[in-house]
Design a protein around this nucleic acid. Structure first.
Lengths: 107, 107
DNA sequence: GGCCTGTATCGACGTTCGTCTATATGGTTG
DNA sequence: CAACCATATAGACGAACGTCGATACAGGCC
């Protein structure tokens, strides 16, 4: 699975780049980690606004980017909306980046 | 190390986001994987231009982005310039994304 | 129903990005 | 030195991004 084994196809690259782009902003990275580390594995949007210096619509926008990239799921429960991390997506990216250690790097 | 354990600090987030941004383009992802999977663990720029539909300066620009993000190293040897992946940087990103499986997600 | 709270969408604005062509730089070779 | 090849830099241009304030939508509560 690591990209070290064989070159990425163009289609895969486009798909993966979209996910990495979702991680390419400090606010979104912190949002993701706040969600992931939150008790119960999910967080209400109301928990996610306080820690940042940006407006509520901006947080909402970033959450949408994470959701459309397939990195988090969300659900409305009553008044509040909850977000959680989708572990398979993170695992895919993580394994892709596994370094060439002890693989032999193609030789 | 995974972001699941505790929320990312703002400084770390800025630093990591810069690296993920370097991975957020399909051309750069394919460049990185071409370099990583190339025989000997390094590739000459001349090997990296053919596979793409973009111009040589554009490839050069993307290589610069990868280098400035700390993901690859480079060296001129005679006429050619060689690039190689910096495994520690990829490993840092990889471990960050390790999913919340069996960690308990903060509870 | 009417109001209040929580969240999402809209439209705008300045900035950054990816790409190009043209050109400069570094190094080898006749 | 001059010509040539490989790579990098400079400058320009349209598209995409991050942010905001204003506003819409959804659900609970009096």
């Amino acid at each position: 699975m690591p990209m070290v084994r064989e070159p990425l196809g163009e289609t895969d690259a486009v798909d993966l780049a979209r996910m990495f782009k979702a991680l390419s902003d400090p606010v979104r990275l912190r949002l993701l980690s706040l969600i992931a580390s939150h008790e119960g594995g999910e967080a209400c949007v109301c928990d996610l606004i306080g820690p940042f210096d940006v407006s509520q619509p901006t947080i909402s926008h970033h959450l949408k980017v994470l959701r459309e990239a397939g990195l988090v799921g969300s659900e409305r429960r009553g008044t509040w909306v909850y977000y959680w991390v989708l572990p398979d997506a993170l695992a895919r990216l993580s394994s892709l980046l596994q370094a060439p250690i002890a693989i032999g790097a193609g030789a």
